[in-house]
Simulated scan of single mutants.
Amino acid sequence: MLRSAHILMLCAIALLCIGVVMVQSAGMRIGTISPDTANDVTGAWTSFMTASAQSRPVIYAAIAIVVMLIASRINVRQFFTSRGLSNPLPWLILGALSLVVLTLVPGVGKNVNGASRWLAVGPISFQPSEIVKWIMIIAIAYWCARKRGVMHKFTFGLLPPLLLVGTACMLIVIEDLGTAALIGAVAIAMLFAGGARLWQLALLVPLALGGFVAAIMQSPYRIKRLTAFVDPWADPAGSGFHPIQSMIAIAQGGLYGRGLGGGIQKFGYLPEDTTDFIFAIICEELGIAGAAVVVTLYLIILFVGLSIVRECKDTFGRLVALGFLLTIGIQALINIAVVTVMVPTKGIALPLVSSGGTGWILTALAIGLVASLDNAHHLAQETGLEANPNLLPA
């Protein structure tokens, strides 16, 4: 019988398959190899590197699916419920934040498109902020589960996780405003679900907005993105180039699109066509119908995932699943809103679709862990042993 966990993972696999196909399509380039160099060492090396680049999304997608299937069999509760030095969570938090700090060190962080968000280990590049994004969810869930009796108190309940999330966001916002905002928004929602008072969280809104505005004002390129959102045609070759080309791609797609591989905007017109703006390529080549399929898959993941959250008996598992689903849902919403020019341009990936090995694998891992909660629930029903809601005593 098809269960919630199966539906969740099938939708994730479908998005990964769409991602592989569309990354390959968006990455198409027009070029020629001269007869004089086609058979020499340089030509062979170029051909090899091109083939490697084309096969990379397939390899990442395969790894992501395997990771998701393994994660669906992990008991996430037992893994993070031990205390003292045997609990890996504090070490994961410290390690992830240390990696973020390293990206800010000149000569260590890898600069991509003017931002030092990346670290490179040999041929592998990754964004430490992506790791922090998921670890913060587990950390908040752990704290709320342990302190559920005092979460309504500011000093002993709410303040410690706020300090942790605030530290992470301050480190990340220097180079990546979108991810910092995403982490902050998900954290606030999880803390409210974990027992914090709404009025306490509301008092943080002016502080968060002030920090958000300050982060924008200290970066000229962020100010340009705001002005381009108001009137992209004021600077069509500069700050307005991204939104204009994205709107053109969507408009050219119509209802059923130009056909897979038939898009025009990817040939030097639309920047970041395999990453942040891949949804525009989907709209151009597959039309509104193809875009609707992608949106529907995200909605199914959220709907089915929330049904797993409702069935979960313990606070820790419920909050972990909720945080993962909120992260995927909000990130997808922001990306689609940016591509459709409903909000200012912001570099944030479309989960499981935009090119990126680290992002695919970590998102698949998160979905696998949500599916594991459903698997554990059905196993408990079969054995008569339900999860203990007081798994993490205060």
Rank of each mutant, 00 (worst) to 15 (best):
C17D: 08
V20K: 02
T274K: 04
V213S: 15
P123T: 05
F192T: 03
C312M: 07
A61V: 01
L379I: 09
V343G: 05
K153M: 13
A289E: 07
I183P: 03
I74M: 09
S372D: 04
N111Q: 14
G287Y: 00
I172T: 01
R83A: 13
V309H: 10
K224A: 14
P389F: 13
I282M: 02
N335D: 13
R29T: 14
E382D: 14
M247R: 10
I65P: 04
A394T: 15
I33F: 10
A364M: 07
G254D: 08
M136R: 01
F48G: 13
T363H: 08
M170D: 12
R56V: 03
A180I: 07
A380E: 10
P236K: 02
L325A: 03
L392A: 06
S55C: 10
A289S: 15
I74N: 05
A251D: 14
F192P: 01
A62R: 07
A366D: 02
A371K: 00
G107W: 15
I336R: 01
D314Q: 07
V230E: 13
R146W: 05
Y142M: 04
A141E: 02
T179V: 10
V121C: 12
T315S: 13
S246C: 10
I300V: 08
W233A: 09
I281C: 06
G19Y: 05
S129V: 06
M247S: 12
Y256P: 08
L385S: 15
L209A: 10
A251K: 06
A234N: 12
P243K: 02
I59V: 12
I183C: 11
F192R: 08
G95I: 00
V67H: 06
L89E: 04
I216K: 01
F126Q: 02
S219V: 12
A291W: 01
A349Q: 07
V23P: 02
L326M: 15
G211W: 06
L171W: 00
L391F: 14
L385G: 15
A193H: 12
S246W: 03
W143D: 00
L119H: 15
I288Q: 09
L159T: 14
R77G: 07
L2H: 15
I330K: 03
R146C: 07
R3G: 08
L171P: 01
S86P: 06
F79M: 06
V353T: 00
R73A: 14
G356C: 09
M22H: 11
D231H: 01
L99F: 10
L379S: 14
A139E: 04
C11V: 03
W91K: 13
K313S: 14
A364V: 03
S82A: 09
A71I: 00
R3M: 06
M1S: 15
G210A: 07
R29Q: 11
E386K: 09
P344F: 14
L204M: 10
L322P: 03
I18G: 01
R222Q: 06
T363Q: 03
